[in-house]
Design a protein around this nucleic acid. Structure first.
Lengths: 133, 133
DNA sequence: GAAATCATGCAAATTACGAAACAAGCTGAT
DNA sequence: ATCAGCTTGTTTCGTAATTTGCATGATTTC
C-alpha cells in the first residue's frame, strides 16, 4: 500500500522542474544529482513522463527536459499515475468483475469512496502550489 | 498502490465471521470454501489476524476461529493493518528521515494529509455496519 | 490413535529496483 | 557538409524483495 519509488522520484523531478521555471531546460543528470536519484533510473522515469505528456524532452547538445505545460496545470495525480498507472486501493475499484461477489459487496463501496477521496486530493494538488505555497 | 490480496482475503474472512455471529466457531476450510480463498493461504492469514488480536483461534477437532471482540469494535483499518502492516502512501509519511529533504518538503504534507484522511475513513468503518447496513 | 484443525516452513511467480550498454538526435566547430 | 561531443531514448540484464500458494508438521478432541 505505497506508491513506488519511481513515482516518488517522478514527483521530485517535476517539483524541481517547476521550481526552475517552465522554459528552463534542465539536463537529467543535473536533476538526478540535485534530487539524489540514480541517474539511469531517472532516465527511464523521464521517458515515461514524456510519453504521458507531462514533460517535453529534447535530445542532443543543449537538450534537456522542460514541463510541457504550466506547473499550475500539472497535478500530483498526473505524475503518480503516469508512472504507477491508475491508483487503486483494491483491484475491484476499477474492475468489479475480478471479485466473485462483484457489486454485491459492502466493502466494495468503501474502497470506491476512499479511492475517490484520494483521487480528488491528489488531483487538486498542483505543482505551482507545491513549489510556491 | 494497492492493498495486497492477503488483506482483501482477510477482510472477507472477517466479514464472514461477523455475519455468522461472534460466538459461532467457524472452521477455516469452511470460510475458504465460501469466500473462494485458497485454504492454506487463508490459514496463514488467520494466524496473523490471531497475532494481531482480531480473531481467536482454537486448535484441534472442534476448534476453529471466532472474533475476539464484537464486530462493531473491529474496523477495516484493524484488519488491513494486521495483514499489510501500517498503511503508508509514501515511505516518508511514517518516517521522514528516509527522505533526504525530510520535513522541508511540500509534498510530504500532502502525503500526510491524504494518509490521515484514508486512515480515518477505514478506521471509521466497522464490520457490524458492513454486514448489517 | 484417528480425525479434525491450526501452524509453519518451503517453493514458484511476480514485481521493484538499479545498472549498463547501445542507439539516436541535436549543436557547434572546423 | 562533416565530424565530434553532449544529451536523451530504448533495451537488456541481474539482483532482491514481496506476494502468493502448497505441502507438511503440530496440536487438540473424541
Amino acid at each position: 500500500m505505497q506508491i513506488t519509488k519511481q513515482a516518488d522520484y517522478a514527483v521530485r523531478a517535476v517539483m524541481y522542474l517547476s521550481a526552475h521555471g517552465r522554459r528552463h531546460r534542465m539536463a537529467t543528470n543535473k536533476i538526478a544529482m540535485d534530487q539524489k536519484i540514480p541517474l539511469s533510473f531517472l532516465a527511464k522515469i523521464i521517458s515515461q513522463l514524456s510519453i504521458a505528456g507531462v514533460v517535453h524532452t529534447m535530445r542532443g547538445a543543449k537538450g534537456g527536459v522542460t514541463l510541457s505545460r504550466p506547473a499550475s496545470e500539472i497535478s500530483l495525480l498526473d505524475v503518480v499515475e503516469a508512472i504507477d498507472g491508475p491508483i487503486t486501493l483494491n483491484e475491484c475499484v476499477l474492475d468489479a468483475s475480478v471479485c466473485p461477489f462483484g457489486e454485491n459487496c459492502k466493502v466494495h463501496e468503501v474502497w470506491c469512496e476512499a479511492h475517490t477521496d484520494l483521487m480528488n486530493k491528489l488531483g487538486a494538488t498542483d505543482f505551482q502550489t507545491l513549489v510556491s505555497g
